[in-house]
Design a protein around this nucleic acid. Structure first.
Lengths: 210, 210
DNA sequence: GTCTATACTACGATAGAC
DNA sequence: GTCTATCGTAGTATAGAC
């Protein structure tokens, strides 16, 4: 399918060079088609850019696959909530450390720092649902009274996982090992899980004596 | 100074569009000079790109300013080491949450995911020294026997801070408040400090019963 | 040291053949 | 639905005026 090939290449090109920097000619020729097919299918460069964001959002569905994210599905006892947090974070780590995430990571990070309509489309998908679910789960797991504390905790928990992708070269130098080694990622996952438990324990304690 | 103006604009342009995507004409005209002055001063586009990396590294000196990073200057008792970790992380948070870091952040993140010689130059500066120092400090603070555990912890600690820049739009949506608000950043700093203590405590405990 | 002038390649959009 | 052809604009590099 021409359209699918165009979108796959577009993720890489827009990720590497941005909306302005990327060239429709380059994308089209890499996809083995004529430039004018972008005009035909997406109306132009901006149209392809937004379609790429939608495509990324749809690709993220499998990260959330099998995870209960709907507010009414979330557990209401602390232990189960904590387990759900561990599950989501380990799923995210598997995704972010995988080779394939490298392709759309730069696209998303660019939108994170300089959001356009494309970010709205990405966040409207599994990403936003996962973020909302994590806040709820942290509230349940720690019995937090104010949501604000849970929100701050969620972004620090997420940061622990994000770093393997967003600061990949630094991680490689600090750890001095091949980041593609599954054993290393598993080790990092255990570290993150232990950190998460330590953080949630402390937040539970904070609740008693603030 | 023409060269300084050129470098400031180059950070933004290369950050937004990468080496290929950015245009020397665009950089030169935004800096109010002719394109050929880039050829004169830096030999061409690649030369300017590497000079931009050096410039970023030099700009990072003030993040490390006043922080003891030389191996022989590091404290050797756990409490002082822990305090030094807190100090470095809070300094990093102040820098990464500040408006000015937005400019070079994309340049660095791009190099993180797709490292070139430019990353070597950046990492050779304060960034690499800070990473090395953090590993040592975590070892001292927790009495860790193996360095590998300390290395993994350092990248998760760093991730907590990095997230405010690398996933800025997501943070804004999760927290539902203005990320430029200094009070919010202070609140986040307290959360990170508490998390860090919880993590270091747990690592110290892990050492006794592994 | 900074500029203009020039040569050549590549860009996005569009019209029209098939 | 996919292609080629063409338009006007913008890209890098280089040579040379001042």
């Amino acid at each position: 399918m021409v359209q699918q090939r165009l979108l796959e290449i577009a993720i890489r090109e827009f990720g590497a060079k941005g909306l302005e920097g990327a060239s429709t000619r380059g994308i089209a020729s890499a996809a083995g088609t004529a430039m004018s097919s972008i005009t035909y299918h997406y109306g132009g460069k901006e149209g392809l850019y937004l379609a790429t964001a939608d495509y990324i959002a749809s690709q993220m569905e499998d990260v959330a696959d099998g995870i209960a994210l709907r507010p009414d599905e979330l557990p209401d006892d602390p232990a189960a909530a904590r387990q759900a947090i561990h599950f989501i974070l380990s799923r995210l780590l598997a995704k972010l450390s995988g080779e394939r995430s490298a392709e759309w990571a730069l696209f998303i990070v660019r939108e994170q720092m300089n959001p356009t309509e494309a970010f709205d489309r990405i966040y409207a998908g599994p990403m936003g649902r996962m973020a909302k679910a994590l806040v709820e789960l942290v509230c349940v797991a720690t019995g937090a009274r104010d949501r604000q504390a849970a929100r701050l905790a969620v972004i620090t928990l997420f940061g622990q996982v994000l770093v393997i992708r967003a600061a990949r070269a630094t991680c490689a130098r600090v750890i001095e090992r091949d980041l593609d080694d599954p054993a290393l990622i598993e080790e990092l996952g255990r570290r993150i899980a232990a950190n998460t438990d330590a953080i949630l324990d402390r937040m539970t304690a904070e609740r008693q004596e603030p």
